[in-house]
């Protein structure tokens, strides 16, 4: 099933780290997913997160405020 992934963050180093991790997981496992970076503050606030970066999978906020490990991201995407 196609997954829509969004990474919310205003561009700090942690947000970039999260993007790298998620990108690697997608390409290494050849997952059917699209990745979008949401950097606009108003858009970010619509998800009601208070700590960035946040990982949103199919409109569900799955991780916030920290950079997850590859295994964690893979588990979330395979759910």
């Amino acid at each position: 099933m196609h997954k829509v992934i969004k990474i919310l963050g205003t561009g700090c180093s942690k947000c970039q780290a999260m993007t790298v991790v998620v990108n690697e997981v997608i390409s290494e496992n050849k997952l059917d997913a699209s990745l979008e970076k949401v950097e606009d503050l108003m858009e970010i606030m619509k998800f009601d997160v208070m700590t960035t970066p946040a990982l949103v999978i199919n409109d569900v906020v799955s991780v916030k405020g920290r950079v997850p490990s590859k295994n964690e991201v893979l588990a979330l995407l395979n759910d």
Partner: peptide, 15 residues
């Protein structure tokens, strides 16, 4: 604390 989270935090509290 991460300074990049200070704005979302602020909004979250206000909201």
């Amino acid at each position: 604390f991460c300074s990049c989270s200070s704005v979302p935090l602020f909004i979250g509290f206000v909201r």
